[in-house]
């Protein structure tokens, strides 16, 4: 699978040759009309956004309505969000609040019914599927709850494939794969077939795959949702490390332990942003909340 010359994407990037599409997990895709630029009139500054940082992501008035059997549900009802370079943002909320819908819109896996999305300063909400495919190859990495690896391929091939598809040489792809697997503690699994790995290992491989093209933005949808607590800890440690290396992460979760790894938590409720706040470690010491929470009353 390593020689990948061939054409399928109708739209090519400015400087890269054509390559076939990356195998993508099957996700519900919206069959809706093209988005109209009919955002709500006001686009106020989003609370919680850094005043000086460079916005990797800018979202204004995002609306998405799911229609089924005559009834319409507003999954997103006017969401504004700015994410600066290097930020690690968790999106929380009850099920049905619109978390996953938001993430799918940000990754171009679904299309909004209204509002705008800018990625690295470029308007992307109206892009074609083909252009989104290119964006996901280079600028946006995505990890889902289930790793969606190509189960019959080796770990190494799973990770290298997107790099090759994005135009890296075989040697570059291998180097990046070796680096990432090393960092993820999976160096000895490179030759293993993906299907033979544990859930936690597969999810780490999925993370490596999402990061192999060094995307400016990593999107994660319940990345620990199907993992036990030890694997969850591993994945969280990796996300934290990638964040410390300056990567931008937007993560959707209902798990507060996961959300608290981020430095900022956006709470969605009924398709709107209910709260947007920085998370800081509670202070330690004897007479603090932390001590109070850990005190064993006997």
């Amino acid at each position: 699978m390593s020689s990948t010359a061939g054409a399928s994407d109708p739209v090519r990037g400015p400087e890269r040759p054509r390559f076939p599409r990356i195998p993508r997990p099957r996700l519900p895709r919206a069959r809706t009309p093209r988005p109209e630029s009919s955002a709500p009139s006001a686009t106020p500054a989003t609370p919680g956004a850094g005043p000086h940082g460079e916005a990797v992501l800018r979202v204004r008035g995002l609306v998405r309505t799911h229609r089924s059997e005559g009834s319409a549900v507003r999954a997103l009802d006017g969401v504004d969000l700015d994410v600066d370079r290097g930020e690690f943002v968790a999106v929380m909320g009850p099920s049905g609040a619109g978390k996953s819908t938001l993430l799918h819109l940000l990754g171009g896996l679904d299309r909004p019914d209204g509002g705008q999305i800018w990625l690295e300063g470029r308007r992307v909400d109206g892009l074609s599927e083909a252009r989104w495919a290119l964006l996901r190859r280079r600028s946006v990495g995505i990890v889902f709850q289930f790793s969606n690896l190509v189960s019959t391929m080796t770990v190494a091939d799973n990770v290298e494939l997107p790099a090759l598809l994005a135009g890296a040489s075989a040697r570059q792809a291998r180097t990046r794969r070796e680096e990432l697997l090393g960092e993820l503690g999976l160096a000895d699994k490179a030759r293993a077939v993906a299907a033979g790995l544990s859930g936690g290992e597969q999810q780490r491989v999925a993370l490596a795959r999402a990061l192999v093209n060094e995307p400016g933005l990593l999107l994660a949808d319940e990345p620990t949702g199907s993992l036990d607590s030890r694997s969850t800890r591993d994945v969280l440690r990796l996300l934290t490390r990638f964040h410390e290396q300056g990567r931008t992460i937007v993560l959707v979760t209902h798990d507060a332990r996961v959300a608290a790894t981020a430095e900022r938590v956006v709470s969605l409720f009924d398709g709107r942003v209910a709260d947007d706040a920085a998370v800081e470690s509670a202070p330690r010491g004897r007479r603090t909340t932390l001590a109070d929470v850990l005190e064993l009353k006997g």
Partner: peptide, 14 residues
């Protein structure tokens, strides 16, 4: 919620 999340973060650090 903010208070709980800050506490959670503190616990993660610990």
């Amino acid at each position: 919620r903010r208070h709980y999340l800050n506490t959670m973060r503190g616990l993660s650090r610990l």
